[in-house]
């Protein structure tokens, strides 16, 4: 057992998810890291505090802030670096200097993403958010996904609607898109996945401790690439657990992923 020091206790499943998210941004340098969701926000901010100090991050709205803002705290102190209203955000997206982590209602083996609707376009069974920025994000900047509940309903052979484009669709487009399209990772409550399988199909990269490869395969509605022995997602260091406690003082990450 590693010593997790002090009051932070043994790392939870949510803590491993945070590390899985943070590792997505390793090596990104001075670009905008834009993780959307509770665990993504903690993970992205942790990456900047611990090993990727030049990342540029928003306050969730129109400001770029240099400090790690704690989640769920009213009126946190902000060290504002720059103004980044929505209109400017599209300039950033289209410049390519951004790595976004979005959610998805459905994802297929090549990373095609849907969060627009399920069923017939003119009379959908379930109306979801809409296209949001997914078509542009996936063509113009690096994209990762966060899936808090890994299940065959999310990981499907074919998505109902393509909002964010996957590797097979990017391959069918012109050179520029093929060269710039990158889906980095998919982090879930069970595992970390990437697109380093055959033909950029989704591959199991690591499982969180307490999860088996079979668990992930069973929770995935398509054939997942699995290479040999799959490692466990690395544990947070004592320093990282302290940073997590500071960035998420109310433990909101445990509401997103339990255990």
């Amino acid at each position: 057992m590693s010593d997790t020091s002090g009051t932070t206790g043994a790392p939870s499943r949510a803590d491993f998810c945070v590390i899985g998210v943070a590792e997505c941004f390793r090596g990104d340098g001075e670009i905008m890291a834009n993780p959307i969701g509770t665990i993504p926000a903690v993970g992205g901010r942790l990456a900047r505090e611990v090993f990727e100090p030049d990342l540029v991050m928003t306050d969730g709205e129109a400001l770029l802030v240099a400090n790690g803002i704690p989640l769920g705290v009213d009126d946190p102190a902000k060290m504002v670096e720059a103004w980044n209203p929505y209109r400017t955000m599209f300039d950033v997206v289209w410049s390519g200097r951004r790595h976004v982590m979005m959610g998805a209602s459905q994802l297929d083996p090549y990373g095609n993403q849907n969060f627009a609707f399920i069923g017939d376009p003119s009379h959908p069974k379930v109306q979801l958010l809409g296209m949001r920025g997914a078509p542009g994000n996936t063509v113009q900047n690096v994209t990762s996904y966060w899936i808090p509940s890994h299940s065959p309903k999310v990981f499907v052979e074919q998505v109902d609607v393509v909002s964010g484009i996957g590797y097979d669709r990017a391959a069918a487009l012109r050179d520029w898109v093929r060269e710039h399209h990158e889906l980095r990772r998919v982090v879930t409550n069970l595992a970390v996945l990437d697109f380093e399988g055959p033909d950029h199909r989704m591959r199991l990269r690591s499982v969180h401790p307490g999860v088996t490869v079979d668990d992930v395969v069973a929770a995935t509605g398509f054939e997942l690439a699995v290479d040999g022995d799959v490692p466990e997602t690395r544990a947070p260091t004592p320093e990282e657990l302290e940073v997590m406690a500071r960035l998420d003082p109310k433990g909101m990450r445990a509401q997103e992923v339990s255990g």
């Binding site: 296209m131 542009g136 063509v139």
Partner: peptide
């Protein structure tokens, strides 16, 4: 797409029929 909506407003404001972009390629849009 959110950005395509912005371009659509901008095109209308500038009185041109469209603005070119890569946004939307390969997608349902």
């Amino acid at each position: 797409d959110e950005g395509m909506f912005l371009l659509g407003l901008q095109a209308a404001a500038w009185r041109v029929p469209f603005l070119p972009t890569r946004v939307g390629l390969g997608s349902f849009v």
